[in-house]
């Protein structure tokens, strides 16, 4: 593995050096003396970043790309064979047999469909709520942002206490006041994922609220004054002034929330464990790679997931492109 790394590193480095030499000799041939000196300095300064980017970004990507076509078994790393598309074939078989991967895709889709709109709408509502001068707006901002800085494992634990089965659970004990019998929220396949969606939206919306707030600050105040003079009500102002002004912020939030949602793992892992009704793609990837030791299969899932997320992100960008 180290030898391969060195070969890749040397190839990459030679390519970088070749590019530098080509650029500098071209500049020299054109007698651009100033550019030769400035470019040389720039390349030298760039070098540490390029090396770091190669080691910590490029190399893992290249390796995981390569492993997707191997039978890499974590307990036997010295014996890796190329098996071409066997991993992908196995994954598609598992989907067709409605195995765990099928559930992972289904649950991830459910989560994304649930959490993306919920989190964005919550963030927008909170943003409109706190973006008013008056007493308490700063306190509310801090309160709404607080869940973002709390560790996911801590919030998952807190919500486990809220959703605990039996009469001891906070939610169950509150509902019992209205005569609702205790429910096992996280074991019931119908309620487990909605609970995780609500928890995730609650935790994440504070961050999006801040981004929306910065977007709101860019909307000119005179537009609101003009619309008031034209007799616009609250809804007209929101729909015709605020929303168009937040469009680019919205696209950014939509894409980041979507990507984040596709990668969900911690909440189901801590709250339910590896279960059919809550397993997600990232969790499946972790389980297969680290618990069952099949790194090859796991990286094949990662590759498919990257292609899928990349594809959807491109579609989103195109769909919301400024005309």
């Amino acid at each position: 593995m180290i030898k391969t790394t060195i070969i890749i590193f040397v190839l990459f480095f030679l390519a970088f050096c070749g590019f530098v030499v080509y650029d500098l000799t071209t500049a020299k041939r054109r007698k651009e003396v100033y550019r030769v000196k400035s470019s040389a300095t720039a390349y030298l300064l760039l070098l540490p970043s390029v090396v770091l980017a190669f080691l910590f970004i490029m190399l893992p990507i290249l390796y995981s790309l390569g492993y997707a076509f191997t039978d890499y078994y974590l307990l036997d790393p010295d014996n890796i064979k190329f098996i071409l598309f066997d991993n992908f074939k196995e994954l598609f078989e598992e989907i067709s047999e409605k195995g765990m991967l099928y559930n992972a895709i289904k649950n991830t889709a459910t989560f994304v469909i649930g959490v993306v709109p919920l989190q964005i709408i919550l963030a927008l509502l909170l943003d409109l709520f706190v973006n008013r001068p008056g007493f308490g707006s700063k306190i509310f901002k801090v309160c709404f942002f607080a869940p973002v800085v709390i560790s996911l494992s801590v919030t998952a634990f807190l919500w486990q206490q809220i959703l605990a089965p039996g009469e001891g659970g906070l939610l169950n004990s509150m509902l019992s006041v209205f005569g609702v019998p205790p429910h096992d929220w996280l074991r019931d396949p119908n309620t487990a994922m909605p609970c995780i969606i609500v928890l995730s939206a609650w935790q994440g919306c504070g961050y999006q609220m801040l981004i929306f707030l910065s977007g709101l600050s860019n909307i000119r105040k005179d537009l609101y004054e003009a619309s008031s003079l034209d007799g616009a009500n609250w809804w007209n102002k929101f729909w015709l002034v605020t929303w168009p002004g937040l469009r680019s912020t919205f696209v950014y939030i939509l894409i980041t929330v979507f990507i984040g949602a596709c990668r969900i793992m911690t909440q189901p892992m801590l709250m339910t464990g590896y279960q059919e009704h809550t397993v997600t793609l990232s969790y499946y990837m972790y389980q297969v790679g680290y618990k069952d030791y099949w790194v090859g299969t796991s990286t094949a899932v990662a590759l498919l997931m990257t292609i899928f997320i990349g594809g959807i992100t491109l579609i989103q960008r195109r769909a919301f492109r400024e005309k």
Binding site: I2, K3, T5, V21, V33, L44
Partner: peptide, 28 residues
């Protein structure tokens, strides 16, 4: 200019060499 270029490439190669040697050490 030529000397400048040579010194840059020498530094780069030296760095590559030292990195490779560090990595080779990991083989042990």
């Amino acid at each position: 200019m030529k000397r400048f270029l040579i010194s840059i490439i020498s530094i780069i190669l030296l760095l590559a060499l030292s990195l490779s040697m560090t990595a080779c050490g990991g083989d042990n």
